[in-house]
Structures are given as C-alpha cells and as structure tokens.
Amino acid sequence: FSITQFVRNLGLEHLMDIFEREQITLRVLVEMGHKELKEIGINAYGHREKLIKGVERLI
C-alpha cells in the first residue's frame, strides 16, 4: 500500500506533486496534522481533513 494509492483512494491525486516534492511517505503522513499539511502547501481545510481522517482509518 503506497502513498500514491492512498491519495488516489481519497480522490486527492492532484496533491501527489506536493507529496513527491516533499518526499512524504505514509509513515510521515501519519505523523502530520493540519499545521504540517498546511506548511507543505495543502491549503484547503477539506483536503487536510480528508487526509487526516483517512490516516486514522489506516492505523
């Protein structure tokens, strides 16, 4: 299971460039909250919320 699959499953594949540029893996994403996601350029609250909720389902 990769970050690419995870992001695609959430319908947020347009954010993949950010994850690749910042070298974010699923392991790193698990540790990130709204503040960190915003810092790397994910400005939409809804997108950040989707990512965080998606990660919570993985754990």
Rank of each mutant, 00 (worst) to 15 (best):
F1V: 12
F1P: 13
S2K: 07
S2A: 09
S2E: 13
S2H: 10
I3G: 01
I3T: 05
I3A: 05
T4H: 14
T4M: 10
Q5F: 07
F6E: 00
F6A: 02
F6H: 01
F6M: 05
F6I: 06
V7H: 00
V7T: 07
V7G: 00
V7C: 11
V7K: 00
R8I: 14
R8F: 10
R8T: 15
R8W: 09
N9D: 14
N9R: 12
N9S: 14
N9E: 14
L10I: 08
L10H: 02
L10R: 01
G11I: 04
G11D: 07
G11V: 03
G11N: 08
G11M: 05
L12D: 00
L12S: 00
L12H: 00
L12Q: 01
L12A: 01
E13M: 10
H14S: 11
L15Q: 01
M16H: 06
M16S: 10
M16P: 01
M16F: 06
M16E: 07
D17L: 10
D17S: 14
D17P: 15
D17Y: 14
D17N: 11
I18V: 08
E20Y: 10
E20H: 11
R21T: 06
E22L: 07
Q23C: 10
Q23E: 10
Q23K: 15
Q23W: 07
I24N: 03
I24A: 02
I24Q: 06
I24V: 10
T25F: 03
T25P: 04
L26E: 02
L26T: 03
R27T: 14
R27F: 10
R27I: 11
L29D: 01
L29N: 00
V30R: 13
E31Q: 15
E31D: 14
E31G: 15
E31V: 12
M32I: 04
M32P: 01
M32N: 02
M32W: 07
G33T: 07
G33C: 05
G33K: 08
G33W: 03
H34M: 04
H34E: 04
H34T: 02
H34I: 04
K35I: 06
K35D: 11
K35P: 09
E36Q: 08
L37Q: 01
L37D: 01
K38A: 10
K38V: 08
K38H: 07
K38R: 10
E39D: 13
E39C: 08
I40H: 04
G41S: 03
G41M: 04
G41I: 05
G41L: 03
G41D: 02
G41C: 07
G41H: 03
I42L: 05
I42A: 04
N43W: 11
N43A: 11
A44E: 15
Y45V: 13
Y45M: 10
Y45N: 08
G46N: 13
H47C: 13
R48V: 06
R48M: 05
R48K: 02
R48Q: 06
E49G: 03
E49V: 14
E49C: 11
K50S: 09
K50L: 12
L51F: 05
I52G: 01
I52N: 00
I52L: 12
I52C: 04
K53N: 08
K53T: 08
K53A: 10
K53I: 08
K53H: 13
G54R: 03
G54E: 08
G54N: 06
G54Y: 06
G54H: 05
V55P: 01
V55C: 14
E56P: 03
E56M: 11
E56I: 10
R57A: 15
R57W: 12
R57Q: 12
L58W: 13
L58E: 05
I59K: 14
